[in-house]
Design a protein around this nucleic acid. Structure first.
Lengths: 226, 226
DNA sequence: AATATAGTGTGTATTTTTTACACTATTAAA
DNA sequence: TTTAATAGTGTAAAAAATACACACTATATT
């Protein structure tokens, strides 16, 4: 019978300036001191795993109620140099704006937390590279049948932002006209009487998610392939 | 920091006589003595979680190398009357034939193991009902983009068997002509020069999975909706 | 030998979805 | 007024999904 300690690690995704980013922390403790790693912590005795992850998210971003989902549990004996430590990995999706770009985590084991573009990731501690790849695969799939994309966008967004997000997650370009046609056909977007501000070119119309229709879509499933 | 014990539970699916079945055990130990439950056990110190599940599968079915995949980790404090016990749930898919219909599990905590049709499930111990529902949802999705169906069929099978399997998993009828057209179009089935035996009506042709093309499909994804 | 039974195997027309593709409109800044 | 940068729009062709019904075959029964 195994009596073991276990932790929760979280891949926190954000979308900013057309790029998908991941929040990494620089460790201030052994093992892997000074390495980059996913935010994570031990799960306390009196909390569910979900609660632990919400706590981790709050400690690292100052935000509550972030969208998150369990990904996978890693339990190899070799994944941690101090012996078997089971980790339940989650991913979280976050509305990122300029204010949240410089998080100051509230825990001692962290030197600092920095948003890293997916294209420029450092080497990660433990098996965190693997966890990150697995969560990418998960959201790549999930974005094509459920509206999780909107968790990464601000309340009001343009169709171009939405398209850039799909392109960032899938790592390939989409056709603008086909994308808009299909997305608008779902009928889950509400056209707002507002436009982008502060741009030096034609301002794009803003949309927001129509939450009444959103829930129907969760049953039917979206299907985006190209 | 939580020092806890953890277990692995496994939803074992089989397909027999056109019906999807789940292997349940009758518990011989408290808590939930005499209740039906999913096969499961404590994970030992020297094995990975995957190895533990393979061991559970072997102890309950006598078979090795069964297809399995991790599903979800449940860790609520309330899910187990003896306090917090984390369980990592897996599902497994099994080629069921008449020989395997009467398994005799090799462990003391089990009185007996019986295949139950999905339509006639008893009340289950712990949160096992919930785990079972979640694994059904998972294979319902997964069968539409990956060839896991073939893990449930014998080496050689008829198109009708394959269709019945999809129908059992999705819980709805499919059109025979459209199903065959689409399935054969994938090009992953190899037509054999053999036919069903021992039936009192026209014998159906046998097929088997073409494993060379199978791997390609794993990249491209299948897409079965109706 | 004829018939009943039970499941096998097959094609086409219609609708829907996906795809490919390029120019004009708008705004702010230079 | 021109330039730069992005917004916004439609159509035709191809591919995929759907709806739909009957003749064929092997065995068992009389």
């Amino acid at each position: 019978m195994l009596n073991s300690i276990f932790t929760a690690d979280c891949v926190i995704f954000g979308f900013h300036e057309g790029e998908l980013k991941v929040l990494l922390i620089e460790r201030n403790e052994y093992p892997f001191k000074d390495w980059w790693a996913l935010p994570g912590f031990f799960v306390e005795m009196d909390e569910t795993i979900d609660e632990a992850v919400q706590r981790i998210l709050f400690e690292h971003t100052g935000l509550r109620g972030i969208y998150m989902e369990q990904l996978y549990t890693f339990g190899d004996q070799k994944r941690h140099p101090q012996g078997r430590i089971i980790t339940v990995a989650y991913y979280a999706l976050l509305r990122l704006d300029d204010i949240k770009m410089n998080p100051s985590p509230q825990t001692d084991y962290v030197k600092r937390a920095v948003w890293h573009p997916l294209s420029e990731l450092p080497k990660l501690a433990f098996d965190h590279q693997h966890i990150l790849e697995k969560s990418m695969a998960k959201i790549q799939r999930k974005i094509s049948y459920s509206p999780i994309a909107f968790e990464l966008l601000p309340e009001k967004f343009t169709l171009t932002q939405l398209q850039q997000l799909y392109e960032a997650i899938w790592g390939r370009k989409l056709d603008k006209r086909n994308f808009r046609k299909k997305m608008l056909n779902y009928g889950i977007l509400k056209e707002l009487p507002e436009f982008q501000k502060g741009v030096s070119y034609r301002a794009a119309r803003l949309y927001r998610l129509d939450k009444r229709k959103y829930s129907k879509i969760f049953q039917n499933e979206m299907n985006f392939s190209k």
